[in-house]
């Protein structure tokens, strides 16, 4: 059994997380300025999350992703809890990506608020932090 009950809950938690980042007073404008569309292909539960300059979308969409990341939902959960780093997850093949690394790297410094907010979301939605 994974961390998320189902796809709907995963969309709700991760959607709120990313929406918060896009509305963050410092990171939000920079995220939008970067102009990147990132597609997360998640498994267990299965789903697709799109982070675009215009907001968070879920499921099948007619966008072109600049970067595509494939990972299990539980790995996304661990990543936001800082229990696994991106290079380690990539090295262990827990995350695979398509799209040039410089585009992925552009976003990393803007993600600080997500690390702060995710434990709060875990508490709100009753997700484990260990």
């Amino acid at each position: 059994m994974g961390v998320f009950k189902n796809t709907a809950q995963m969309y709700e938690v991760l959607g709120e997380l990313w929406t918060g980042l896009l509305e963050h007073p410092e990171s939000g404008p920079k995220m939008k300025q970067a102009g990147l569309t990132v597609k997360y292909n998640l498994t267990d539960p299965d789903g697709t999350l799109w982070i675009t300059p215009d907001g968070v979308k879920t499921g099948d969409q007619n966008f072109k992703a600049d970067v595509e990341m494939n990972l299990a939902a539980d790995i996304a959960h661990k990543f936001w809890l800082k229990q696994i780093t991106l290079p380690a997850a990539m090295a262990k093949r827990l995350i695979t990506s398509k799209g040039s690394m410089d585009k992925v790297m552009k976003l990393l410094p803007l993600l600080g608020p997500n690390y702060e907010n995710y434990p709060k979301l875990c508490a709100k939605y009753g997700l484990p932090k260990e």
Partner: peptide, 14 residues
Amino acid sequence: MVAEPDTYEAMLDM
């Protein structure tokens, strides 16, 4: 130390 044995082989490959 940025990589240890658990990730070494994959990091080397990259």
